[in-house]
Amino acid sequence: MKAPAFAYAKPSSLAAAFDLLANPDAKALAGGQSLIPSLNMRLSSPELLVDITGLPGLAEIKVLDDVVRIGALVTHARLEQSPEIKKHVPLLAQAVPHVAHAAIRNRGTIGGSLALADPAAEYPACAVALDAVFIIKNKTAERRVKAEQFFKGLFETDLKPGELLIAVEFPIAAKSDRAVFLELTRRHGDYAIIGLAMHNERFVFLGAGDRPKLFLFQKDLQKAKEGLKAGLNPPADLYNSSATKRHLAGVLLERAWNTNTTSR
């Protein structure tokens, strides 16, 4: 398990990074928690790794008027320890401890996780539940994309060649907001069999399809359960059939519904 040969560059400015990423066989490297294993297993063989961890300004958590802006290079560990995240984006704060293990949380980044778009990962579901906005740049322009539009499929996003995810903006939670994050893993830190990021009436399931699966449920639990039954068709995994996952999704739905966790 040795990576094939590749070139490596660590630019110190966004402009330099974009120049390097113009190479179609280049890949951006952040925390490396998914990319490096895929290189070692020879599932991926980019010509050039552009290490973006030296870029300035991408590792900040900023509390603005209505949103918390999280730079793409902020690590899971920093999110976990951040009082601002705990206070203003409680759903994310609940989700972070479920992300893998401490060693991975020390290096892995929020931008890396979102840009990879693993449908079993925690952040994509949180981003959709919270209606987060993704800030994307290329060499010449910046654009903003809503979470629901960002995730296009299995490991597939709205990011185009030459673009980088720069930051994500999460709305600051109101006092009346309710947020619950639940997931079922046989071992802590594994990818969830099924998980749920709930924000008010927005119920987003992870591990339930090719991308985060959003349901809008109001008031009636029974109706919500029926809606879930009709609308959720999760793919089977090695240990769980689709029916088992659907059953477990229903359990999480009911538990989230009955959880009194509020935003503050």
């Binding site: 046989r186 069999i193 769980n240 059939s241 029916a243 088992t244 477990l248």
Partner: peptide, 13 residues
């Protein structure tokens, strides 16, 4: 004894 095997034994799935 996976969760699925236990759920099946319980008739839940």
């Amino acid at each position: 004894f996976t969760p699925e095997r236990i759920l099946k034994a319980l008739g839940r799935v």
